[in-house]
Design a protein around this nucleic acid. Structure first.
Length: 534
RNA sequence: CGGGGUGUAGCGCAGCCUGGUAGCGCACCUGCUUUGGGAGCAGGGGGUCGUGUGUUCGAAUCACACCACCCCGACCA
């Protein structure tokens, strides 16, 4: 694709080599040098999947990877994606871990309607303002056959009395319901979570990162005191951060949002921010202290121990399938996905060489069974229509942490070849030691991914004191910038205008430090985290 | 919502300028030979050329309109 004239790059003939970058060249149409993706010709052999290398075009790499790895597919509906079995299995694993963490902290699951009466969205002014522009609206409830036989049309007689909004989030309908559920301090706290889909009619979409419909969980809690609600919001943020680091191997910065980045209707928005490989930040989860805003809008009160009527205090918190995008952009490389073992749907895959020959298959099955008994998620490839080399590339593309290859020589010598996805290293080991070796290696890969990602964040976090440096770093390298800010929305907006960087958060662990605003020079008492964001 | 671009086989593209009834690579199917990093050879199947109207003896090709999608901005978990 040419950035200037938008023509596709002309196909070029390049011998098959997954490991050499696709060459860039001048645009064949307009002659500019903005071409950033040249297709690799397949004439020289099977070149099933082509992924644009990251250094050529990071956004294209991401799109190629999501499609070719089998995470997701484009759909017939604009802005909506199909989550394929691999992507969905990842989501199921994330959901299982988070669900357990929620339940361990006393939360229970429930399900509220997809449709929300329009009038509900008129209740909390700020909240409405935040979502009104991107809502899908249901106006009719019936179709009929067109009179000219051309298909079906909306039946004008089936107009809804009150239009329904497809939920962009469920605060309104949930708080409408909580009004009936909460009478007394004995009904509190109310700790409910729901796993659901939501719709936000976005202008521009990207697989997993921003789609019109997405899957998420939304927790909605009610509390008797302000302090308890704040503690809840912080506790859930902590769970998100722990999940990101311990399971996704993705380091995050915990912080609070500035007023301009705050959730519509919240008094305080907490967030975890992650840094992607291209130096852009990604909000990976949010937790909100909603104060009494929704309690007041929906008149949710309780009688306390002193028989005093009070409004309840609220929180809401969520993570979405966006986490899959975050996972991809944290660990994956030019050869495909790299999945952390704790979330990988398949942790170890067995490939026999040649294809499916005995006794290699029997050996593979035997070892696989031992691993499975030891709690490892394994897969034995029994497909006899593809060759070993093809399978190697395919499983690397799909991010499986460990591949075990068994050939004739291995059978003779009582060995197997173990290859790890994160470093691409291969070792030949004795068959008897396989279970211990694999278990240790899975742990090491998990650990290595986190360490590698932490190093990346460390090397791309810059403490900056002059606006010149600020601009230069944002332009040349990206990454996180820790700088002083005078605390005003005007300065925040001005910096965004000049650099496209926004305040991602005010880090919770940032120490008090006297300084001067990087733009205005006005006094500041702590550094905030800036970055260009997704 | 502004600016640009593209619609031809499942995917990626050529053909269009200069109208004559559609082609290439991959994928797919069959057979043989291969098999320690995306196999080779031979044969084969598949397309109302985005939609509509017009010009013409004749339209993938020219004109107009419409639709869809993509990219770049503004907006956003």
């Amino acid at each position: 694709m040419c950035k200037r004239c938008s023509k596709s790059a002309r196909q070029q003939c390049v011998p098959v080599s997954r490991h050499s970058a696709a060459p860039a060249s001048d645009c064949w149409s307009c002659g500019s040098s903005f071409v950033f993706c040249v297709f690799i010709c397949t004439r020289f052999g099977t070149m099933a999947k082509v992924i644009t290398p990251r250094h050529v075009d990071y956004a294209q790499w991401y799109n190629d990877l999501v499609i070719h790895s089998g995470l997701a597919d484009y759909s017939a509906v604009r802005g909506c994606m199909i989550i394929k079995p691999l992507g969905y299995a990842l989501w199921e694993n994330m959901r299982a871990v988070l669900d357990r963490m929620f339940k361990e902290t006393g939360h229970v699951n429930a399900y509220f309607p997809l449709f929300i009466p329009k009038s509900f969205l008129s209740r909390e002014a700020q909240h409405v303002e935040g979502f009104a522009k991107e809502c899908a609206v249901v106006t009719h409830h019936r179709l009929k056959l067109a009179e000219d036989g051309s298909g079906v049309v909306v039946d004008p007689d089936a107009k809804l009395e009150e239009e329904l909004i497809v939920r962009p989030t469920s605060e309104t309908i949930i708080w409408h319901t909580y009004r009936d559920w909460i009478q007394s301090y004995r009904d509190l706290p109310l700790l409910i979570n729901q796993w659901a889909n939501v719709v936000r009619w976005e202008m521009r979409t990207r697989p997993f990162l921003r789609t019109a419909e997405f899957l998420w969980q939304e927790g909605h809690t009610a509390h008797a005191t302000r302090e308890e609600a704040i503690a809840e919001a912080e506790r859930m943020l902590d769970i998100y951060a722990r999940f990101a680091e311990e399971y996704m191997a993705m380091p995050v910065v915990r912080g609070i949002k500035t007023p301009s980045e705050r959730f519509a209707g919240a008094e305080e928005t907490y967030c975890i921010e992650a840094l992607m490989q291209d130096g852009k930040a990604l909000q990976a989860g949010t937790s909100h202290f909603l104060g009494q805003n929704f309690a007041k809008a929906f008149d949710v009160t309780f009688l306390d121990r002193n028989n005093q009527r009070q409004y309840v205090w609220a929180t809401s918190w969520g993570v979405s399938t966006r986490l899959i995008g975050a996972l991809v952009m944290t660990h994956s490389d030019d050869d495909g996905l790299v999945l952390p073992p704790r979330l990988a749907p398949i942790q170890v895959v067995f490939v026999t060489i040649p294809t499916v020959e005995e006794p290699q298959m029997s050996v593979a099955r035997e070892i696989a069974e031992k691993l499975q008994t030891a709690g490892v998620r394994v897969h034995v490839d029994t497909d006899d229509t593809k060759r070993a080399g093809f399978k190697f590339a395919e499983y690397e593309l799909r991010g499986i942490p460990i591949r075990i290859a068994i050939g004739r020589r291995d059978v003779e010598q009582g060995t197997v070849e173990v290859a790890r996805r994160d470093t691409k290293e291969k070792v030949t080991i004795r068959r008897e030691t396989i279970v211990e070796h694999v278990q240790a290696l899975l742990e090491e890969i998990q650990h290595n991914l986190l360490q590698r990602a932490r190093r990346f964040v460390r090397e791309n976090t810059h403490v900056v004191d002059s606006f010149d440096d600020f601009q230069r770093i944002i332009e040349e390298r990206g990454g996180f910038i820790l700088a002083h800010w005078d605390g005003t929305a005007e300065t925040e907006a001005r910096i965004k205008e000049l650099t496209k960087a926004t305040i991602r958060c005010i880090p919770l662990d940032s120490p008090a430090e006297a300084g001067r605003c990087v733009l205005t020079g006005k006094p500041s008492h702590r550094r905030v985290l800036f970055a260009c964001a997704y």
